[in-house]
Lab assay of single mutants.
Amino acid sequence: KELVLALYDYQEKSPREVTMKKGDILTLLNSTNKDWWKVEVNGRQGAVPAAYVKKL
């Protein structure tokens, strides 16, 4: 499985998103959308802005 690093804090704004903190390591589930990537963090799945994460 592919991992990404959170470059910034992000507070979810809808139920389809997830909150992450700078430095979090997230499991990347889907990166086909260039703006929003689906990730899993702390057992929750949701979208985060692609510009806020970097593939490891």
Rank of each mutant, 00 (worst) to 15 (best):
S31K: 10
L7I: 11
N30E: 15
A6C: 14
K54T: 13
D24M: 13
E40P: 00
E2K: 10
W37F: 08
K54I: 14
L28G: 00
V4H: 02
E2A: 11
G46N: 02
G46T: 04
D35S: 11
W37A: 04
V53R: 00
D35Y: 15
L7Y: 04
K55D: 05
Q11F: 14
Q11R: 11
L56R: 02
L29Y: 04
A50E: 04
R16F: 15
Y52M: 13
A50R: 09
S31N: 09
L29Q: 04
Q11T: 14
K1V: 14
A50T: 07
E2F: 12
V48G: 01
L7D: 02
L26M: 14
E17G: 14
N33D: 14
L56Y: 10
T27Q: 10
L3V: 09
K21T: 10
N30K: 07
K34R: 12
A47R: 14
A47K: 13
Y52A: 12
A51S: 14
D24Y: 04
V41G: 08
S14G: 12
I25K: 05
K21M: 10
L28I: 05
A47L: 15
L26K: 00
T32A: 13
L29E: 02
L7V: 08
E17I: 04
K22I: 06
L56D: 02
N42H: 09
D24F: 05
S31D: 15
E12V: 06
D9E: 06
Q45I: 15
L29V: 12
K21A: 09
G46H: 05
D9T: 05
L5P: 01
A6I: 03
E12Q: 14
L5W: 07
L26R: 00
L56Q: 05
D24R: 01
K21E: 06
K1N: 11
Y52G: 06
I25M: 06
N33H: 12
L5V: 15
E17D: 06
Y52H: 07
V53N: 01
Y10Q: 01
Y52S: 11
T19E: 03
L7H: 02
K22S: 07
A6W: 03
G46E: 04
N42F: 08
E12R: 13
R44K: 11
W36V: 05
Y8D: 08
L29S: 04
K1P: 13
E17P: 05
E17C: 08
D9A: 07
G46I: 10
P15I: 11
G23Q: 02
G23M: 02
Q45P: 07
V41C: 12
Y8L: 11
A6K: 00
L3S: 08
D35P: 02
E40S: 09
E12S: 15
K34V: 10
V53G: 00
N33E: 11
L29N: 02
V39G: 00
V4M: 04
R44L: 07
T32M: 12
N30S: 13
K21L: 08
P49K: 04
I25T: 06
S14K: 07
K13D: 06
V48T: 02
Q11I: 14
E2Q: 14
R16S: 14
L5I: 15
Y52F: 12
A47I: 15
V18R: 00
L3W: 13
D9W: 05
R16G: 15
V53D: 02
N30R: 06
E2R: 12
D24W: 11
K22W: 04
V18F: 15
V41M: 14
E2W: 13
P15A: 12
D9I: 03
V48L: 02
K21H: 11
D9M: 03
R16C: 15
G43A: 04
T32P: 04
G46V: 09
S31E: 15
G23L: 02
K13S: 11
G46S: 03
N42E: 09
K22P: 03
N33F: 07
K54S: 11
K13L: 10
V39C: 05
V39W: 01
L26F: 07
N42I: 03
N42L: 07
V4I: 07
W37C: 06
